[in-house]
Amino acid sequence: MTSIGTGYDLSNSVFSPDGRNFQVEYATKAVENGGTSIGLRCKDGVVLAVEKLIQSKLLVPGSNKRIATVDRHVGIAASGLIPDARHFTSRARNEASSWRKQYHGAIPVSSLADRMGQYTQAYTLYSSVRPFGVTCIIGGVDEEAGPSLWMVEPSGVGWGYFGAATGRGRQAAKAELEKLDLPNLTVEEGVKHAARIIHIAHGDNAGKDKDFELEMTWVRVDKANVVEVTESGVVKGHGRHEEVPKELVEEAEREAKKALEVEDEEDEKMEES
């Protein structure tokens, strides 16, 4: 059944006869036009990466950050309408802050994702608001679960992931993420894969002629703040969300570009034979 012209897609909170909420689906369209975001849950931390498309060379390089810190131990990467992503992170910061006031401790990432899912879902319930035009990847490390990664969609649905991808290059990114043995990777290895995946996702879609900046952050536990290391090497403790050091990003990007060139050459050989 098509949505357009039926009238069922003109207002939020309205079901169509076959049980769909079109405004939420349209919000998802806004996400699918946005730059790719990915998250990797490794055994000792989480990596977040975004493809930040550069609209104008007049923009200040390295400014206009797309990955936000929510609390010491949590970061959010988002694809879609950027102002909506700012609203989303602002709410997440309030949740994290009020958790600290109530419980005198850092909010578990799963609880934060759960609350943000509820908040997002509330914006699908009323005709007086519109859904969020963003899908957000929430990554962090906490005491109870160790590294954890969640993705909240405009519908309010939120799942936990080992590898999450959203935005215009999500399909290519997902295909690459599935090839990885994420539960056994370290964040250092994760950073290299993340850089490579963003480069692949960028080359795979319509905006590939545009310039982009790779923005990467990670959440890791300082040695002094480790609470427990499980048998499988999962690190639990007080994580810290911060930018991946510049040298590491540059190295990862160099390797990513090299890997892509090799792949291209192989493709050409395949075509020749």
Binding site: S3, L10, N12, F22, Q23, A27, A30, V31, R130, G133
Partner: peptide, 16 residues
Amino acid sequence: NNYDNDSVTFSPQGRI
């Protein structure tokens, strides 16, 4: 079009 009456309606392309 039908999608430009207010700022709480997405168009089928995800625009406002």
